[in-house]
Amino acid sequence: MGSYQSKPLRWTLVALRVILGAVFIYGGYVKLRDPWPLFAMGIDSYHLVPFRFVEPLARTLPAAEVALGLWLILGFWLRISSTLVSLFLVVFFSAMVHAKLAGQQINCGCFGPGEPISKWTLLRDGSLLAAGLFVSWHAFRAPRRTP
């Protein structure tokens, strides 16, 4: 990060990176712990993804979440990692809002099965998205690091 940032802002950004990274690692871990069809059923319940893509997504997304969480915490190539995290969160949040507006009574699938989409889950994921966008915005504002 560049020197334009005050100390409190720098620490806030570090804290947000660690929180977002930890959430991604945990979210990926709980899905990896269970058999992949369980997460696939969660994805399929949204009725947004064609069935042929459900299995590849269910098999790869949890590992991608863990990798992305680690990457964000480690802090290198922050513009790319924070943008990817924000993109993931945009997709997750949009899917949840769509399901809620469509009146679907389904589980969020964010941290394994058994958590219905509710105001609370929307607030939580919306807050994570806001944090992701905040980190991304500052990553792009900061001058590029030169080797």
Partner: peptide, 18 residues
């Protein structure tokens, strides 16, 4: 394992087969 409501049979089959 608590499965999501009304799962697709192909996924349920994959889970059981596993």
């Amino acid at each position: 394992y608590n499965l999501p409501p009304a799962p697709d049979y192909r996924l349920l089959k994959s889970m059981i087969d596993g």
